[in-house]
Computed example of a mutant assay.
Amino acid sequence: MIDIGKYNELRFIKKTNAGLILTDGEKEVVLPYQHAPQDIELGDNLHVFVYIHSDGRLMATTETPLAMVDEFAFLEVVDTNEQGAFLDMGIGKDVFVPEREQKRPMKIGQKYVVFLYTDERNERITASSRLTDFIDQDSHDLEEGDEVSLLIFDESDLGYSAIINQQYAGLLYHNEVFEDLQPGDVRRGFVKKIREENKIDLSLQVIGFRHILDLKDSLMIELQENGGIINLGDKSSPEDIYNQLKISKKAFKKAIGSLYKERLVVVSDDSVKLVIKPADETAG
């Protein structure tokens, strides 16, 4: 069975004026010559993306789409009409967003986070910016501390809403984010807390003791690469710390506190310095 809006393994069975004919054994798909490998031979299998052309034919391409069916993606509007908007998929085939599926009216040249699906009536690839209709809100398999992939899709007074692992939604709080995030930004994140009704709090920093271990190693490397000194200390602003190290001030202070207890660094209001041990001590 051919999956429309996804990759398929199809066999090359013949040539026509329109292009190569590929099949899964039941249905035939046209691959235009400009997208066909030059060394293709009859009987070869091809890994192709399949979609429905405006004339109703099944079409294939070896180009890489910006998104596939059952995925969230950040796509640009290239055209609009009374029925809806058309988003660039990166393959010469635009995806349609019906007016009813637009959370806000879409404008040409703007980019939006959308979910791609196949319309049950005609099997065409369709998109929606009404994301909550496609987010799994009833259950999840996440645990606190898990590393996840985040796609930022909205901002509120509390913080930034993000799609987690292409399935769930969570929140990054403003007071724990030290960069200007925008819809469409992709970040590595971590599950900070799972609250009632499966609401998920997120962080851009590693959670727990492993976080401090990772930061200690990173800070030691930073010190060694900068002549044994970092021009950040107890009185440095959270913004300065994040701009240089991409971590929060709280995490920075925990990590340098741990290094200080091990007598590896000395800390002042505006700097952290490596402790230079005597040669006989380091040799032992």
Rank of each mutant, 00 (worst) to 15 (best):
N175T: 08
L219K: 10
S156V: 09
N226W: 11
H174E: 10
E120V: 11
Y168H: 12
S237T: 15
V177M: 13
V113I: 10
G228C: 04
K192A: 11
A162L: 08
L232E: 07
L181K: 04
R210T: 10
E155P: 00
Y117F: 15
V191L: 03
D136Q: 12
T126H: 10
D214F: 05
M220H: 05
V148P: 08
Y168I: 01
L223N: 04
L116D: 07
Q166C: 09
Q166S: 13
G184R: 00
H140G: 02
L131T: 08
I221S: 09
D185H: 14
F115W: 15
V113G: 01
H211S: 15
K193E: 15
D201L: 03
E197H: 12
S203P: 04
L181E: 02
S139L: 08
N122V: 06
K193P: 06
N198C: 01
D136E: 14
D185K: 08
F209W: 06
T132D: 14
L158E: 05
K111I: 00
K111T: 02
I229E: 15
K193A: 12
L151R: 06
P183S: 04
L202K: 05
Q110E: 15
L202F: 10
Q167M: 09
I212H: 04
L215Q: 14
L171M: 14
S218C: 04
N243Q: 14
L204H: 07
L151H: 08
D234W: 12
Q137M: 13
N175W: 15
G170R: 06
D240N: 15
D185A: 07
N231T: 06
D217P: 00
S203Q: 05
F134C: 05
V206S: 08
Y160I: 01
F178P: 01
L215E: 13
R124C: 07
Q224F: 11
L219D: 08
L223I: 06
I164V: 07
D185M: 07
L171N: 06
G159Q: 08
D201A: 13
Q137F: 14
G159H: 04
D180C: 00
F153A: 00
D138C: 00
L151W: 12
D138Q: 09
T118P: 01
T118L: 14
D119A: 09
S149F: 12
H211G: 13
V177W: 13
I135F: 10
I241A: 03
I194D: 04
R187C: 04
Q182K: 14
I152V: 15
G159V: 02
Q137E: 10
D201M: 02
G189W: 07
N165F: 12
